[in-house]
Structure formats: structure tokens, C-alpha cells
Write a protein that binds this DNA or RNA. Structure first.
Lengths: 340, 340
DNA sequence: ACTTGGCACTCGGAACGACGGAGTGCCAGG
DNA sequence: CCTGGCACTCCGTCGTTCCGAGTGCCAAGT
């Protein structure tokens, strides 16, 4: 059904359309690509490709443009990921190495990715769910208020204010702090609730209400830590091609991209680190993103936690180049985080 | 020169143009506003207003639209800040009260402001420069690495990784921690460098290299803390009116708004809390924002630090309503931060 | 069985001109 | 100083025409 030449024609159509943003006709195809046959032959192939749903005409008697299905085939079988140039690699590395903390790493990464791909970039913070507790710190704010600071092995810090049931002094705080840390340090988040069950009984009776208050807040911080955060950059890139690619849908797209929830679903289930996912058009999890494609990859922070990053762009995007950039950035950010 | 009726005409022109986005003519003016005179008279007034540069015609024989100068006069003398409805006030309060930490407060605030004004909202994090150190925490990560966590009285947390010159044990860390905190806790940021000068001499000789490394990083964190951060939301609102208000300039505007530096200059020198600043058109500090207006206000976090928030929108904006919303949000966020 | 050149057909987009209407400036009279 | 009247300007719209790119199909060639 789809012989080699038809596939070559499809590839040529995708490439031309991506670079010119105009429906491509049989004549210009044979001119630009060495297909070795006449336009009429190409027309027959195009009719077959259209029959199978890989390409379509915007209007009768116009050139063809790829459909979602056409892009899908292109990505799956007709293209290969394009590695970055050594210069680009060096630029990535030096740019990311300047980061001072986790927040900074994420922000630098998302900006870098936006610049590199000239598209909207999205980076998920490393998930807490697989990380372990490095240290819990209690700091008195007033006589009845403590600040609880939770430090994880991925360098992430969560903070919460605890209202204590009664007045506390520094000594009490010290006791609690050591009691907490001896139990919790080095444990995975999922284990924390278990190892803390005996803490109230182990503390002197007069400290128990306070201990339970602190524990409650710690558990809350752990749970909310799962609620992932996401950084976004490069939305300006959407408007660059907006007139051509999103004549009507720019507004809903930007609205969708401002929703953390949507972004989370967009990056979706993080897969094996380094593996690339491409979602094309209506494969996307949100209606507003139907005219767009998403290229994403998982990355590891050390070996502890797994998260995703990716870019959002028009369906008419340079898939090989974008995939190369996303993969490279995912790898480098993993390296940087592992080193920290 | 500008009698009362001319001012009334200018006000009417601004109001009509803001709501319809069409050049407004003399006839529709007398119909919609009770000016008590005929269109011909209005035409004379309009000619005078145009002469003085308050209004302009897009083309010969079209209606008039306000100029930058016209909007400026409107804001200064012809309008008053419109207070929010009680329902809106309640909504603000309940929405902000749900915040769990400083990050959350800022994020909620910026989203709230974007929704309320239907424009792009910008919120600066409370400045560190006037805050005091609550606590400094040192956490061993590996044998040669410490995490330094700095907690301020405004609830902000800064973190840095310190590479120590030699191996450290828990006891050493404890000594350093207390030495640091006894000197630094409760001090203003600006005082910290001074009170730390004697620390290296006061520590046992074998700990000195480590002490200086930690101090260096602490000072760096203090300095970088000055480097303010800014949260942004509601960029989708720009595109809503983009076709009408920013036909060509949407892309550069979005690019400018992605630059932290530009945002900082945009909020500019924070003024007295509650005071409103309006920048119209070319009064703005960045060329890309010439077709826009910025409404901003200072807010206080407790009584410690001062920061700004505001919105960016088309020059053709509802100034009284926007100013009311910005002022209200600035007040409430101040309250919330003071309570924390 | 596939490829090719020829040919009639379709349709979108640009170019053009006519037209209506909103708005103006000016002037003479109240 | 205000007002009604009037001639003028010019933008935006609408219909028309025209051109060209591209197609589908067919008959002939390999």
C-alpha cells in the first residue's frame, strides 16, 4: 500500500510544509526533491496518501498539507532525532553550570529550552515522591509559632508555619528537632508517616500536643510536596508564528498554559529518563492544545526522583531538531542535578 | 483654556473610547452623555482639545481618540479610583487566606490580580534588603558539602550549597551553627557583614577555613537575595484584546514581559504603601511597552520590607476600575503578610 | 501495470472601482 | 457663544473581474 516512494513523498511534503508553511503541490515537490518521476506520478501518490488520511487539501485544488496522522507517521518512521552541534552542547553546559540552587536550575533550564527550540518550554520540578528527607529544621518565630523547614536530598526546600498549642522554649524545640530527625532523616517520603507513629508516645507528656501539631504539619508538607510545580518560559514564541499557525486559538492556548494542572497533564507520565514522547494535535490531553504538538522527555535528578520537561509548539514544527534539543537538555539537567 | 465643558468632553471621549474601542464622534457624544449642547459645539471643543494635544484623529474626518496626554489628564484630574464591591473584597480575602507560604501568597496574589483586572499582573517578592535574619541552618549533605539555609522574618528562605575545604563532622557543624546564629539572628541584612567580621578569629584554628567558606556563601546569599524576583500571570489577557490594541506589538511585549529585568524596572521604585502609580504609553521604561499602560502600587509585608505589584494593559483600559483593584489587592496582601 | 504529458476545471486571493456613511470644518444666522 | 446647514473627505465594504497554482482524469507510451 505505502511503497517507498509514497513514504518519500510524505516525508518531502512534511519537510516542505514545515519550512514554508504553504500547501505543497506536486510540481514544486519534484523540483525540490530528487524523486525521479514526473508531477503526474506524484499526483497519483498524493491521491493515495490522501485516501489513507496522511495528507489533506485545505481547499479543492490547492496543495496538500500533512494531517495529524501524517505527522505521526513522519515522526515514527520517516525522521530521526537530530543531535545538537558541539557548540550548542557547550552552551547548554556552561549555562546550566552557573545555577546556584534548585530553583535556579529549573529556571535556567526552562529558559534555555525555550531559546534553543524557539518554542514554549515547560519544566517540571523534580518530584518529591521518590526523594528522601535530608533534614527537618524547627525554628521558633514567636513563642507560639514555629517554622518547619523540610530539606530533601534533591535540594528542594519546603517550609510551613506551625501554630503550637502552647508556648515553647528553645530547649523544647531542640528536643523535638532531634526526636524528629533521628526518626526521619534519610527516609523516603512514603516511609515518614510510618516511622513517626511512635513519636507522640516517646515524647514527655507535656510536649505531646506540640509534637502532634508539628507532625501534622510535616505530613501536610509531604503531601503537598507531591503536588508538583512547573516552570514555563518562551510564551512569546507562540506569538511569533501565531498568525500562521494559531489564527484563532492563541488565546485559549495561552490560557491553558497558565493552568498548572494542564501543564502537569501535558508532561504526563514521566517515562524512562531520556525517552522522548511526542504528542501531535488531538493526541494532546487538552482541547486547547489540539492545534499544537508537545515534545517531552523524562529526566532524573540524581537517581532519586524522576520528572519531565518538554516544549509546546505548532504541529508544523521541526520535529528532528526539537527532539534533539529536548533530549539533550533532559540529559544535561540530569547531570547537573546529580552533581549537586 | 480648558473650561469645564471641554474637560467633560475629554472625559466622555476617554470613557466611550475605552468601552467601544472606536474613534468617537461629536454626534454619538451628545447622544450618550448629557452635555446639553449640540454636536457642532462639541466639534469646536474637540478642535481645541486636539489643538492642545489631548486627542487625535486616526484619519482625516474620523472620530477622535485620546492621546497619551489625554489619558494622563483623565487619570490625574477627571477620574477617581473606583472601590471594589464588598463581594469582590470578600473574594480577595478568602482567596488569599488559603495561602500556605510566601511563595503561595505571591502566586495567589498575581493570579488574583490578573483575574480581577483581566490584565497581565506582576507581583514583586517582598524585598530582602530591609528584612532581618531569623535563623541560619547548616545541614551536612556529604562529608565535604553543607547546605546553608537562611530564614528571614518575612518567611522567605534562601538556600545554598557550600563546598567545604575539608571533611566535616556533625559536631563541627553544630559549633559553626551556634556561632553563626548567636551573631546573626535578629540582625538586618545590612548588618550581617559587620557582625561576622570577628567570627574567623573566634573559631578554633582548625575550623577557620570552613568558617570562612560558609561565611562567604552566606554573604553571597544575602547579596543575591537583594536581586528581586517577580511573578507574572495573565499573559493570556494580552491576546484577548491583541487584535484591537496591539496589532503588531504583541510579540515584543510578551518578550519584554519575560525579562525579569524589564519587570523590575516596570514596577520601579516602590513608593509609599497604598500609593498608586500610573505609567501611560511612552512614560513606560521600555520601548516594547510604549503601547501599554502600567498601574502599580507599593505594599508592605509586615513593617519589614516594601515591594510593588501592578498590572500591564492596553492604554485603552478602565483606569478607575483597574486602579481600585490594584490598590485593594496591595492592601490585602500586606495584611496577609503582616499576619503571617 | 505503471508512468507521463495534456487538458479542462476549480477555487482562492489580489486588484479594482463604486458606493454609502460617519464624521469633519466652516459659515451664517440666532 | 451656540446652532443648524452644507459641502467635503475618506475609510471600509461589497461586488466584480482576473490570474495562477493546483488538481483529477484520460489516453498514449514504455
Amino acid at each position: 500500500m505505502l511503497d517507498d516512494r509514497k513514504l518519500a513523498v510524505l516525508r518531502a511534503i512534511v519537510e516542505d510544509y514545515v519550512s514554508t508553511n504553504e500547501p505543497v503541490g506536486s510540481k514544486s515537490l519534484v523540483e525540490k526533491h530528487e524523486l525521479g518521476v514526473s508531477p503526474a506520478t506524484i499526483r497519483n501518490d498524493m491521491a493515495a496518501l490522501e485516501e489513507d488520511g496522511y495528507i489533506a487539501q485545505p481547499h479543492t485544488s490547492a496543495g496538500r498539507i500533512p494531517t495529524d496522522k501524517g505527522y505521526r507517521l513522519f515522526v515514527d518512521r520517516l525522521s530521526s532525532v537530530k543531535p545538537l552541534s558541539p557548540a550548542e552542547r557547550r552552551a547548554i553546559q556552561t549555562f546550566l553550570e552557573g545555577a546556584v540552587d534548585l530553583d535556579d536550575v529549573v529556571h535556567r533550564t526552562v529558559r534555555l529550552l525555550a531559546q534553543l527550540t524557539r518554542q514554549v518550554a515547560v519544566v517540571q520540578y523534580p518530584s518529591l515522591s521518590r526523594s528522601t528527607v535530608r533534614h527537618v529544621e524547627l525554628v521558633p518565630l514567636t513563642t507560639t509559632r514555629l517554622m518547619l523547614v523540610l530539606i530533601t536530598d534533591t535540594g528542594r526546600v519546603e517550609q510551613r508555619v506551625v501554630e503550637t498549642p502552647g508556648a515553647v522554649d528553645d530547649e523544647t524545640v531542640g528536643i523535638l528537632r532531634t526526636a524528629l530527625n533521628t526518626r526521619v532523616a534519610g527516609k523516603r517520603f512514603t516511609e515518614v508517616p510510618v516511622v513517626l507513629t511512635d513519636l507522640p508516645e516517646a515524647t514527655p507528656p507535656e510536649l505531646r500536643p506540640m509534637a502532634t501539631a508539628v507532625i501534622a504539619m510535616l505530613l501536610e508538607a509531604l503531601v503537598e510536596g507531591h503536588e508538583e510545580r512547573v516552570a514555563l518560559a518562551g510564551t512569546a514564541n507562540l506569538t511569533r508564528s501565531a498568525a500562521a499557525d494559531f489564527p484563532l486559538t492563541l488565546h485559549p492556548m495561552l490560557e491553558a498554559l497558565e493552568e498548572q494542572v494542564v501543564l502537569m497533564r501535558l508532561l504526563g507520565e514521566a517515562v524512562a529518563p531520556g525517552a522522548l514522547t511526542v504528542r501531535i494535535g488531538e493526541e494532546n490531553p487538552h482541547e486547547a492544545l489540539y492545534p499544537a504538538s508537545v515534545v517531552s522527555a523524562g529526566y532524573t535528578a540524581g537517581d532519586a526522583s524522576l520528572a519531565s520537561l518538554g516544549v509546546v509548539g505548532p504541529m508544523r514544527m521541526d520535529y528532528p531538531g526539537t527532539m534533539g534539543a529536548v533530549r539533550a537538555v533532559a540529559r544535561y539537567v540530569g547531570q547537573i542535578l546529580a552533581g549537586e
